[in-house]
Design a protein around this nucleic acid. Sequence first.
DNA 1: TGCGACATATAAGTCTGACTTTTTCTGGGC
DNA 2: GCCCAGAAAAAGTCAGACTTATATGTCGCA
Lengths: 233, 233
Amino acid sequence: MSTPGRGLHGHVLDSLGPAITAGDFPPGSVLRTDELAQRFDVSRSVMREAVRVLESMHLVESRRRVGVTVLPESEWNVYDPQVIRWRLAGADRPRQLRSLTVLRSAVEPVAAGLAAAHATPEQCATLTECALGMVANSRGQQLEQYLFHDVAFHRVILTASGNEMFARLGDVVAEVLAGRTHHDVMFPDPDPAAVTLHVQVAEAVREGDAGRAERLTREITVGALEELDILAP
Amino acid sequence: MSTPGRGLHGHVLDSLGPAITAGDFPPGSVLRTDELAQRFDVSRSVMREAVRVLESMHLVESRRRVGVTVLPESEWNVYDPQVIRWRLAGADRPRQLRSLTVLRSAVEPVAAGLAAAHATPEQCATLTECALGMVANSRGQQLEQYLFHDVAFHRVILTASGNEMFARLGDVVAEVLAGRTHHDVMFPDPDPAAVTLHVQVAEAVREGDAGRAERLTREITVGALEELDILAP
DNA sequence: TGCGACATATAAGTCTGACTTTTTCTGGGC
DNA sequence: GCCCAGAAAAAGTCAGACTTATATGTCGCA
């Protein structure tokens, strides 16, 4: 999905980031750069670079004479893809998935409506292909193939909306959908109603019917939320 | 609003960040750490820390034997508050405001609906106060006072939704609203209809009427979008 | 002429040690 | 009890030497 551990400082981040986001260090905990450098067996320069990155994510704050203070969750840059990945890998993954799914339920319908107005013919074609791919793999435990087309579908919607803020949520949606298929309980086959809705959204976008695209997508996301409620009530 | 230029590397970022996000270096441009260190008159260690931060924002990519490559806009972490601030300070500020306003139009109505279900009595009280504050300052060019209550209002809605992803957009909304009042053309007095809508949203949340809160908030954001269309068609 | 292996230059990456600066804490004097 | 000066602690900064990956160019061979 992304670039794990490039360089020594990256390796340090791969350890420290998940540890902090998992709550191993309660907010207000104080770490010392030198000690961390020793613990990870890297030089102080490398450790400082890692701390700077954590600081830019607002996971920690570095102050003179004090040290590196872990910030409360409310300060974190929870939209940073790296932070999202770390948190999804952690213990309260279910809560993350819920948060992100609620975000989806707000964004995707509006994005679909905009896509109906702005999608290029190519994007419409891709959308239809994705929907058909979902149909073709909706039965017979072909979850991986289904997931592939599902992710592609939602990426196209978000991109075709023409809004960059929406487009950049493609990775988030991909993580959420992948998480549902891989880590969490999943029904052996996808919900047939959801498959139909995707096909209909592709139709609505193709026809430029913004209102219908939005309504149908809202139904999809409502379904995703209900699925979460069933799995983790 | 935030923490400008803490430390030497922060000062470098305050210069480099806006320059990159403004497009001063076309995507693919290659910078060299040593040269940058000279240009900003800092040591390489400091420069390296700054580059690491830019790298974590996906504004640049650092590769051996090549240098620091500026990435295309499509790679940027556009949800990073710092990046948002840099871009809003730049030349294509209007486009940013539009992107962010569209995001608001997707998120805030859903947030208001959730707030109606989850808001504490304290939050309801604060919300009503904010709405009243808006009413009280809606006439007579008291834009600053009006803005203050407007920002507070939307922050409460986003927080009361109980969704952390929504809550973290409070700063973004604050930037957008402040931008509208300060930098851009603004009607001498706020739209009376918008003021009324805010009061009604506060009512709906207080009464726990999620549907109405969502609908009314959608009207507010539609109004904000239309306002943009009028100002920059 | 074309292609692959090898050599080389380059820029990032890393480490170390010394020094500076800010800020908290401590303790003494009033 | 309060305030100010000094000390201590940790981050911040710098300079220099060394390592490593890698893009590119060169040479020989087919």
